[in-house]
């Protein structure tokens, strides 16, 4: 953490506002973000209470849109029987495997395209065209190639994760400030030191942002993957709920998706946080 330093600035002691406790703005920022987090919970909470009230009061039937209490009960049932955990683990496992694969390839290909113009000229147009293909369009092909089991699912998710990471990394490397590279040159950094001490840190914030959007897409693609035939996973819960006419189960799965996605993103932010302390824009968890 930041160390409080005594003010020994001999020149600009005429600027007391700047030299005020440096931790102050950060504290204000964190507090502000917490207030906002609470504000974010407010809307769904009010809607839930209104809906619950409307059904209890007899203003609505709630057969297709069950009240929060029913959804809660369904979640509880699923959790008690251990089904919820099973489905969560199945989905999370696929997302993580696909994310790892997509992030790895996205980073490597993005790094190659960002640092070598030849590579970028060669592969970027093709990748841009592939990026425009809707995810679902791959499903039949992947099933033909890899069967309906895990491989095709993980690969589909990896495809989803790949593109934002590739774009983010390639763009970040291309836009590294030449002026900072020159600082490295003046101190005669060799190639590897230049990468490690200047280029990697410069690219890090954009890389983490691209990983976050990749992870978000991973959660979208996992549903598509699980729609194409799965016996477990939150996507399976969705399909099953539709076929069995259990809207509460569908909503329970949707809510679980939201929570899992948010949690996974939160974990990623938390891991990357200490690396980005230097950034001017770092504000509480988003």
């Amino acid at each position: 953490m930041q160390v409080e330093v005594p003010m020994t600035d001999t020149v600009s002691n005429n600027t007391p506002s700047h030299s005020a406790d440096p931790a102050d703005p950060r504290r204000v920022r964190v507090k502000g973000s917490r207030t906002f987090a609470l504000a974010g919970v407010l809307l769904p909470l009010v809607l839930a209470i209104l809906w619950e009230g409307a059904i209890r009061g007899g203003f609505a039937v709630g057969r297709l849109m069950p009240p929060p209490s029913t959804i809660g009960a369904t979640l509880w049932e699923l959790a008690k029987s251990g089904e919820l955990q099973l489905h969560c683990l199945a989905t999370l496992g696929r997302v993580l495997a696909g994310f790892a694969l997509g992030a790895l390839f996205g980073t490597m290909v993005g790094a190659a395209a960002g640092s070598l113009v030849v590579v970028s000229r060669l592969i970027d147009p093709t990748l841009q065209a592939l990026r425009a293909v809707p995810s679902i369009a791959w499903v039949p092909l992947f099933i033909l190639w890899m069967g309906i089991f895990e491989t095709s699912k993980v690969v589909l998710i990896a495809v989803g994760v790949f593109f934002p990471v590739y774009l983010g990394v390639a763009g970040a490397i291309e836009s590294i400030d030449r002026k900072l590279i020159e600082v490295g040159q003046v101190f005669r950094l060799n190639r590897w030191a230049m990468v490690r001490r200047v280029m990697l840190p410069a690219v890090l914030p954009a890389w983490i942002i691209s990983l976050r959007s990749g992870l978000g897409l991973g959660f979208m693609f996992v549903v598509a993957a699980e729609f194409m035939g799965a016996s477990e996973g939150l996507g399976f819960l969705l399909v099953d709920g539709q076929q069995m006419g259990k809207p509460a189960q569908i909503l329970a799965a949707i809510i679980t998706f939201a929570v899992l996605g948010k949690l996974a993103d939160g974990v990623l932010v938390m891991i990357s946080r200490p690396l980005l302390l230097w950034q001017d824009t770092s504000r509480g968890p988003l």
Binding site: V5, M7, T8, D9, T10, V11, T15, H18, F187, W278
Partner: peptide
């Protein structure tokens, strides 16, 4: 004239202080 500033981030410095860091960086070698 920046004793005690060693643990700060560059963004927390004024323009003149940043330029002094740059001068220190050049002189230190």
């Amino acid at each position: 004239g920046l004793a005690g500033f060693d643990n700060r981030w560059p963004r927390e410095l004024s323009g003149g202080q940043q330029q002094r860091v740059a001068i220190a960086r050049a002189f230190v070698t």
